[in-house]
Amino acid sequence: MNSEEKKIILKTEGLTKHYGGVKALHDADFTLADGEHVAIVGDNGAGKSTFIRQVTGVEIPTSGKIYFDGNLVNFKTPADAKKAGIEAVYQNLALADDLDVPSNIFLGQEETYFNLGPFSFLNENKMFKQSIDVLAKTGIKIPDIKITMNNMSGGQRQCVAISRSAGFASKLIIMDEPTAALGVQETKQVEKIIRSLKENGVPLIMISHNLRQVFNLVEKIWVFRQGQIVGCVETSKTDGNEIVSLITGVKQGVGEEASFI
């Protein structure tokens, strides 16, 4: 596992985002190798979500460059990023509440009988069958996928959101707090999906506040503080103390009893 030899899938140079006078993200240099799973950690307002929003085209950076899959990219909308192969699972669960599971999994990229642009007729049968395959691949059990999202538990919703991005041939998956507000069983399910992505060689960026989860799942941790990247450490060569001191900016460790380790 020599990461030097691997292709760089995502690279940012001097990525900066200012909201008026607020420097939400400043001069971020970030690299991600193909197949690599990394976590982004940091305190509230450290710039994690801002960073993700620039990379996925939700917002346009104030300055800086983004290279994706070898090319300089300039995403104007989430659709551009999606077309390039970046799939994002957002914190606020980007699901249409009144649609069923297949409609949500295929939203924006529906299967059709023949192409008439936006007026194409939907192939509901094909979407139904493929949804069952996609859910089976990620090990998610939903009794009836024809019921609408607002009738599902938080865990089921999150699993659908994740299998939505995992189900398509994407080059990079980004997850913003994938297990926030989930129960123990549901968290395990999501972690299982993430491990299966690793086995399939799909690179992943995950924002998480849960350091135990981060140490279990990823090989590299990027630490953000006050809008800047303050460190990048390999999980195998560090411990919770070092990460926490990077997050808080306090040099000495806080001891093993810290509640969020």
Binding site: V58, T77, P78, A79, K82, K83, A88, Y90, N92, L93, A94, L95, A96, D97, D98, L99, S103, N104, L107, G108, Q109
Partner: peptide
Amino acid sequence: YAIGGNPGAARAAGIN
């Protein structure tokens, strides 16, 4: 229907 259910979701799915 998706726009009415969650416009943010529709936008994130690449719908104009």
